[in-house]
Amino acid sequence: MSDFLTIKGITAGYGDGPAILDDAKMTVQEGKVHCIIGPNGAGKSTMMKAIAGMLPLRKGEITFKGENIAGLRPDQMLRRGIAFVPQERALFPKMTVRENLRMGGYILNDDKALSSRIDEIFDRFPILRERADQHAGTMSGGQQQTLAMARTLILRPDVVMFDEPSLGLAPKIVREMFQIVRLIADTGVTVLLVEQNAVMGLRHADWGVVLDLGRTLFEGPSAEVLADPRIQELYLGGQKVA
């Protein structure tokens, strides 16, 4: 495919357990929103963790800008411009919003640059400026998710990965989250995300990747994936989704 980010033949699992992912792949286009969907246990989160370097790969190829990055640690991925927000949002609950953002730029090790980048984030997400000195753990779920996503932008990454950003949020807030995802993509950042709610995810994405039993069933432009009859079969055994 393109030589931006290539992900193919991914096989991974936890510990000595069975392979959760078996020969999964996905196509990534620069600057687009990619949504990985699939039924429970399909391996969506596992795929994301494997790409982010949180799980060792048993097999597979991940190359980024021509470099083989399979098997790197998450912080090494970060230095190369790939940021990841795990499902648990990964905030520091007793640090303020500003301190959380500072931690986002920990590897920058440059106070001045960090402060100005935090200001940029505050310009883009005014709610975070309003809450700058509040402990992250005391904010609402939506605000916490906003902070977790905004925090990845401090390092000006090329690729951001969000594992179920909608988890535990009210429908109205979920829509806001997807607006933020779109805003991020509009600045040229490539987004990979996992979504439990397939319809919701595909509606807000450009590209859909369907996983089942650890393998990539098929992928394509999200409108096409959404219309594909295989989706309905996969989710509800032939009944209509949503």
């Binding site: 970060l78 905030l91 609950p93």
Partner: peptide
């Protein structure tokens, strides 16, 4: 102290 995994993820 607050989130070991997240700290590691951010390069600590």
């Amino acid at each position: 102290t607050q989130n070991r995994e997240a700290a590691a993820l951010l390069g600590v």
